[in-house]
Nucleic acid binder design. Structure first.
Lengths: 207, 207
DNA sequence: GAAAAAACTTGAACAGCCTCATTTTTGTAG
DNA sequence: CTACAAAAATGAGGCTGTTCAAGTTTTTTC
């Protein structure tokens, strides 16, 4: 069934993506020309466009790798979060943050975000939005889990609250990638400061 | 003192900005080529670059016009907000939202946001960030005002809360401009749904 | 008022993303 | 094995944002 043609196709796509991950990280997304990428992947420029619709597409594909991985890792925290509302929320968020620079540079994040805002109706833009949705859903699931466990007040609706938390962790992350000088440690402190009062407000009162 | 040269310079800059506001709205930012802009402003392409550093710069300048205006209008609400925490917060946010499409299309907003994320260290990117800061400061000032008036619990710190509210109104606005089909009415309803529970949590309890 | 200097304008040339007519490779039928 | 069809690869060329050396206009100097 899987003939020569299919194998070669899969191989070329893999080569292009691999070349992109390497070159974008090492030289920066902007600095990498399509020609460099094509050379590295041993294909022509035209061929790159048979596999990806635009330069930004290739970047979004690398971002997707990273986010899929972090979502899978977050699942464990959602299913069995640490005790305490604040600790549980921060555990999930820190998971996201700490993993974020594993394959991607800040410049790559910035560009991917810019693409998703500027071209939301392209396949690439939608793909990035879908990734965001997965993370948002995970935060909501965490709140629901905490409520079921009796740590969050029963009258709290997990959906708007989860969205609110997601918006804030997302904005904090945007600030982080916009500022090359900011460290992961500073990012963690910043989000903790925002989450602490919120956690107190939604937790079962007795503390 | 103000010689011929200065007058001509000011006039050219005005012509370029005016051409940009018109053309970007009518034909779309992407579709307008620098050459079109230069022709309309009766200058050469090179001259445009003496006044603005890049195409995106011109866009940011038009966004600045819009935001400066909305900040000025918001000042009235901050100084004398309507009664009720929820009403006051929504009054300010609706002010922002309702004004947002006066000079700018959704595409223009998307592009401006993309620039500010992708190139935060350029003058343009910083200028957009400064505008954001002004709006954020206004939200914080409003919360402080409400607290002084005894409508918000005294133990609430206006700074993190104001930032949280700003993050959410900002994200909701980003969703709005990303989705061409979304109406202002839907945007208003979406932010109201997010702000209602928050307003209840921070208001003086007695309701 | 002429000459020199300074400031500004100009558009041709350049760079990089992307397209598409052509060529090459792979699969299939006789 | 040959001929044909389908699919994919190729890279020269188009398009548009940006730069910069040369030219023009305004200001200053004497």
């Amino acid at each position: 069934m899987t003939g020569l043609r299919d194998r070669q196709k899969a191989d070329r796509e893999r080569r292009i993506l691999h070349a992109a991950v390497t070159l974008f990280r090492d030289r920066g997304y902007r600095a990498v020309r399509l020609e460099d990428l094509a050379d590295r992947a041993d294909v022509s420029v035209g061929t790159v466009y048979n596999y990806y619709h635009a330069k930004g597409d290739i970047l979004i594909a690398t971002v997707a790798l990273e986010v899929e991985e972090v979502v899978a890792m977050g699942q464990g925290i959602v299913e069995d979060p640490p005790r305490g509302v604040e600790a549980a929320i921060l555990a999930l968020i820190h998971q996201y943050y700490d993993h974020s620079l594993k394959y991607l540079s800040k410049e790559m994040w910035r560009t991917a975000m810019a693409i998703s805002i500027e071209a939301p109706d392209t396949p690439n833009g939608r793909r990035y939005a879908d990734l965001d949705d997965k993370l948002r859903g995970q935060v909501i699931a965490l709140i629901a889990r905490l409520r079921d466990r009796g740590e969050v007040r029963p009258r709290i609706d997990p959906v708007p609250l989860g969205e609110l938390i997601f918006n804030n962790l997302n904005m904090a992350f945007i600030e982080f990638v916009k500022n090359d000088a900011m460290t992961l440690e500073e990012l963690r402190r910043s989000i903790a400061a925002q989450m602490r009062p919120l956690a107190r407000m939604i937790a079962m009162e007795d503390a």
